[in-house]
């Protein structure tokens, strides 16, 4: 195995034009993903967190070219030797590489065709890859079993399955082509708590068994902490902090991360409520504020924050933050439980 990262993303951008008037003149852009760069190692799970509208879903989709990015590069090295730029690859190259990457969506009800049997749904990516029909059944059954689906039920339609089982079908479909990269967009948010735990355990297990790399998009910080090796926090289209999970949760280096972590309600009534209440609302990606996008809500903001846009820089080895004041602030992370 080489040390080359599986993914190297450089300056990835996705701008959606704002059109107005009868002539649909472009009057501005929503910068949904704005100049994002990071690397993903082989076998790594990167959590992508942020509030709704921060661009985390768009980023996930741009990476695997579900939508076309406006600019930037996504260097993808599924096999050790070759590396392709997914952002600029032509249709043929993309199609050839589709089997190395796949996606799991949030809603297991709308992402499965009600008119296909579960067997056909899981086999679809194989057929798209022109895998010989004789190999398909074996592959489908093997992956279905790894995902905890009873092969006897494969001839049924999705409506016969519960939410958790449907999500297992979605996962099986994403993994049937033996991909190296899976982008999972809120894969457990639509599920009941008890089922959510089962799916998280399944993803953990599959990840080890198949040596998968995940980009795990979620808004639930406890779920991301559980599954991710590293976490990137997004705010208004930009990554504002990126580091190892434990480091991020125990010693955040960006005031937004600190506020996010403090806002998660902990299942312990004895803990004092130390939530940092952020004033105002998430800035608009169509009309962001000057300087640091977070400064109007930041309790530490100084003069420089209002005027100068910060860049994502390495404030400690392996810890990237886009805060001018990162070194001078002493931010609070999650206090570990005292019990047990």
């Amino acid at each position: 195995m080489s040390n080359k990262p599986l993914l190297k993303i450089e300056g990835l951008k996705k701008y959606f034009p704002i059109e107005s008037g009868a002539l649909r003149k472009v009057t501005g852009y929503v910068k949904a993903v704005d100049d994002v760069s990071f690397e993903l190692a082989r076998g790594e799970v990167l959590g992508l967190v942020g509030e709704s509208g921060c661009g985390k879903t768009t980023l996930g989709r741009c990476i695997i070219r579900a939508i076309d990015p406006t600019g930037g590069a996504v260097h993808f090295s599924p096999l050790d030797d070759e590396s392709i730029d997914l952002a600029s690859a032509d249709k043929k190259t993309l199609r050839r590489n589709r089997r190395h990457m796949n996606m799991v969506f949030q809603d297991p009800f709308s992402s499965l065709s009600p008119r296909m049997t579960v067997r056909d749904i899981i086999a679809e990516p194989l057929r798209a890859q022109k895998i010989p029909e004789s190999e398909i059944n074996g592959k489908v059954e093997r992956i279905a079993e790894s995902c905890g689906l009873n092969p006897a039920f494969l001839s049924r339609y999705p409506n016969a399955f519960s939410g958790g089982q449907r999500q297992r079908v979605c996962i099986a479909r994403a993994l049937v082509t033996d991909p190296v990269l899976v982008v999972a967009d809120e894969p457990v948010s639509a599920l009941d708590v008890s089922v959510q735990g089962q799916i998280l355990n399944l993803l953990q297990h599959l990840r080890q068994e198949l040596n998968l790399s995940f980009i795990f998009v979620a808004h639930d910080l406890s779920v991301v902490e559980h599954i991710a090796d590293r976490v990137a926090v997004m705010y208004v289209g930009k990554i504002i902090e990126l580091t190892d999970t434990e480091q991020l949760y125990s010693r955040p280096q960006h005031p937004y991360t600190e506020a996010l972590l403090s806002a998660v309600p902990k299942p312990d009534p004895d803990l004092p409520d130390e939530t940092i209440i952020l004033g105002g609302e998430v800035a608009s990606a169509a009309n962001p504020p000057s300087g640091c996008y977070f400064h109007p809500r930041c309790r530490y903001a100084g003069e420089i924050c209002r005027t100068e846009a910060p860049t994502l820089r390495e404030v400690e080895p392996g810890h990237w933050s886009a805060c001018h004041l990162a070194e001078s602030l002493d931010l609070a992370g999650v206090v570990p439980d005292q019990d047990d």
Binding site: V193, S194, E225, Y249, V264
Partner: peptide, 20 residues
């Protein structure tokens, strides 16, 4: 079933089997 924040263990979650 629900992971607790600030408690990364790497262990599988103690979930409930089956569905509601």
């Amino acid at each position: 079933s629900a992971p607790r924040i600030g408690k990364k263990s790497g262990e599988p979650l103690a979930t409930i089997m089956g569905n509601v």
